[in-house]
């Protein structure tokens, strides 16, 4: 187990280092990094000071070293737009994104599982067909399209839900459902097929033969055993709830890091872009490692592969 933990953590460290190279390269891709990393209103003297601090006139490996040193000590530079340390701007917005992601994850899990179980218990019937179609649409219709159609129906035509912002429970509904949409479809498909496999097994037949009520057979005997592949898929989707917010937050004006990223890109606020991409990516990579370790802890077979 210890060897497994060490190897997964080592892998995560390499991945985060790889992302830091990409992030470092970002500002250097477009030619003069000074033009991107120095605030536009800086005086020539300030300009030169920042160039010296970032080592912009020195070779690239040295610049990368300076960049990495800043990252390790928590110094990501100042956001031009907000005039505050980029890390603080990020920290203010990140909880909003996490809240939305958590709600979306719950919606996807509950929705996907109940729809999938319904499909499996009515295999071949009408609910099953409807579910198959929904699952197919889930993978073919991009989330921003769902968002727009939800807005069209529930805000414009029915006037039930507010279109944007984050104030109160109602504003969570449409962003969370659009963010959950794709995962919900995938989870429904996985639940359905996993449940169908389990329903064929002898112990489920035995439970039926014993005369247990159908709901008990389904939830206690079948569903519990069908749960592992469903949870695996769900853990793979966790990343998506955060990175998918880039699009959803911009549609619903949700004050999280997805909206912040696009604003920062358009206002060419590079210190902020670098911070968001690096910190969010590291967070997601570590989240993945956490899930993997949890799995290895639950299922010893995984450690061996």
């Amino acid at each position: 187990m210890l060897a497994y933990v060490a190897s997964r953590l080592g892998q995560a460290a390499i991945t985060i280092l790889g992302i830091s190279v990409i992030v470092f390269a970002l500002a250097r891709l477009s030619g003069d990094a000074g033009a991107l990393l120095v605030p536009p209103e800086a005086t020539p003297q300030e300009r030169q000071d920042i160039r010296d601090a970032l080592g912009l006139d020195r070779p690239l490996p040295v610049q990368y070293g300076i960049f990495l040193k800043g990252v390790v000590t928590g110094d990501f530079g100042k956001s031009f737009r907000f005039g505050e340390p980029a890390l603080e701007v990020f920290a203010k917005r990140f909880p909003n994104t996490l809240q939305l992601a958590a709600v979306a994850a719950v919606v996807a899990l509950l929705g996907g599982v109940s729809v999938g179980v319904l499909g499996a218990t009515h295999a071949g019937g009408m609910p099953d067909r409807v579910i198959t179609i929904i699952a197919l649409l889930g993978q073919a219709v991009p989330s921003f399209l769902i968002a727009i159609f939800l807005m069209l129906i529930f805000s414009v035509n029915l006037g039930w839900l507010p279109t944007s912002g984050k104030h109160g429970t109602l504003t969570y509904i449409m962003p969370a459902v659009s963010l959950a949409w794709y995962s919900m479809a995938a989870l429904a498909r996985m639940t359905r097929s996993s449940m169908l496999d389990v329903m064929e097994t002898d112990y489920v037949r035995l439970a039926r033969l014993k005369g247990l009520p159908e709901s008990r057979v389904i939830w206690k005997h079948a569903f519990r055993n069908a749960l592992i592949p469903i949870l695996t898929l769900f853990s793979l989707q966790l990343i998506f709830f955060v990175s998918g917010s880039v699009i959803i937050e911009n549609i619903f004006a949700w004050p999280g890091i997805g909206q912040l990223t696009v604003q920062a890109i358009f206002s060419r606020d590079y210190p902020l872009v670098q911070t968001i991409v690096l910190v969010t990516s590291s967070f997601l990579v570590l989240l993945n490692v956490g899930v993997d370790l949890l799995y290895a802890f639950i299922d010893p077979r995984i450690r061996l592969t």
Binding site: I14, T15, I22, L29, T261, Y270, I276, T280
Partner: peptide
């Protein structure tokens, strides 16, 4: 294989939009 693992673990959309943003 190691490089492949790194790229598979990167949150694709976030990095893609920031790279496109930087390149124009």
């Amino acid at each position: 294989s190691r490089v492949t693992d790194v790229f598979l673990a990167v949150p694709f959309l976030l990095v893609a939009i920031s790279v496109v943003g930087a390149l124009g």
